[in-house]
């Protein structure tokens, strides 16, 4: 199977304040020629559908609001192999299924890309009906810079 070298995937609910950061970034990327040709996928609140996008790609970048106990708007770029998730399998539900559950499931069924990078943003507020908080909205430029570097790195590796 021919695989995509990389995909960028957003998850989160746009109606829940900072949980919509991933979608907001995707909307921005769609206007930028430097990201054309890269699959930009919004999984919204259906985190389980990430699995459908895992099997045909070498690498995945996931943009998501991540609770890391840091200042709101703080961005962390990390590979899933570098962290321990709070995996609460027992709390598995379809709406509640989170990225940690999906990664565990993908690993168990052997449908995991070689590299998964998470661009995580510490949320300030996750309330229904609110847009992005100023701290998270201000982080957008830096998030896109990070994505550009990750894409460059990926393309460089392929050419190399």
């Amino acid at each position: 199977m021919i695989k995509f070298p990389i995909k960028i995937i957003a998850i989160g609910n746009v109606l829940y304040g900072d949980d919509g950061i991933g979608y907001s970034i995707l909307q921005d990327l769609r206007k930028r020629p430097s990201f054309s040709g890269i699959p930009l996928i919004n999984c919204g609140v259906d985190a389980l559908s990430l699995i459908d996008h895992f099997s045909d790609t070498e690498q995945v970048i996931i943009i998501d609001a991540v609770k890391m106990g840091m200042q709101p708007g703080t961005i962390k770029v990390f590979e899933t192999s570098d962290v321990e998730f709070t995996v609460l399998s027992k709390l598995f539900s379809l709406h509640g299924i989170n990225l940690a559950n999906v990664l565990e499931l993908a690993e168990l069924i052997g449908a995991i890309p070689d590299k998964i990078t998470i661009v995580g943003v510490e949320p300030e507020q996750l309330q229904a009906g609110k847009g992005l908080s100023p701290a998270v909205a201000d982080a957008r430029t830096e998030i896109i810079d990070n994505l550009r570097s990750l894409i460059f790195e990926c393309q460089h590796q392929i050419r190399g």
Binding site: I11, G12, N13, Y16, D19, V45, A47, D64, A65, V66, K67, M68, K76, F78, D82, V83, E84, F85, T86, S93, H95, G96, I97, N98, L99, A100, I118, G120, P123, L126
Partner: peptide, 13 residues
Amino acid sequence: ISCSVHVLNVQFI
């Protein structure tokens, strides 16, 4: 009962 907000909890090693 509701839609959850899909937020990941991460503990950095």
